[in-house]
Amino acid sequence: MLYWQVLINGVLLGGLYACAAIGFSVIWGVMNLINLAHGSMIILGAYITYVINSATGLDPFLTIPISGAALFLLGFMVQKYLINHVIEGSVFMTLILTFGLDLLLVNMTLLLFTADFRSITPSYAGLGWEIGTIRVPYTRLGVFFFALALTLILSLLMNRTKLGNAIKATSFDKDAAGLVGVNVFQVYAITFGLGAAMAGMAGSLISVLHSFSPVLGGTFTMKAFVIVVLGGLGSVPGAIVGGLILGITENFASVLLEAGYKDAISFILLVAILVLRPRGILGKQFFAEV
């Protein structure tokens, strides 16, 4: 019975991981831009939810659109007025820029919210369904479904709309996309905005389950990195698969092996995937090409 519980825990965690990684994946896949400030954007989303929740008592799940909109705006502006200026240059320039942006966000949140750890406890926290000896907590289930829904919406946006086609066209070949009338830099700004919005909304979800502090962004960027490499760059289903694999592996490792090794197991998995299938489980080769 314990193993069923572990499997469910793994799946629920995996959904959240997928949602936290998807924005990172899209930005990387479309622009070949590694957004080192991704984790800090997640934390910023969590603080937006925290502030609204403690001021008005609004349910954390209902703040998702607000943190999404706020982060979209931030991401759009950052890409339009900062990153677009260096995106044509070497990859190091964008790395340095997003690293600086990360420092800026971390210190800004430190200034605003101090380094104290925060968390949100809604009235239904800790309650859940009990099926035999298996427990499925409401908050985790809610987070899982919201994470999947957000990821699906993004997937529909990418595959069924004109904007999505423009984004994909730009990621395949930006010169060709420019020739057929796509405003490449505008598409870049929107893509970064979408990635940031996904990070912010994931942050809102994380605020319900975890504690957060301005300096914790780095660990989320790290997880996103692993998930994206596992699942495949720029691929929405890839992020879901990568997230689920990581979540399930971590949970089984913590029960079957000594729990202290669970991070080691995830990274061994990462290395194995890189050796056996470098483009990721669902990745297509051309996504990552420069």
Partner: peptide, 19 residues
């Protein structure tokens, strides 16, 4: 048991403890 620094999930360890 021990968990690694910076872990994001203790649920399965806690399920084991519960049992």
């Amino acid at each position: 048991e021990k968990y690694p620094t910076g872990t994001k999930d203790l649920s399965s360890m806690l399920a084991e403890i519960r049992d």
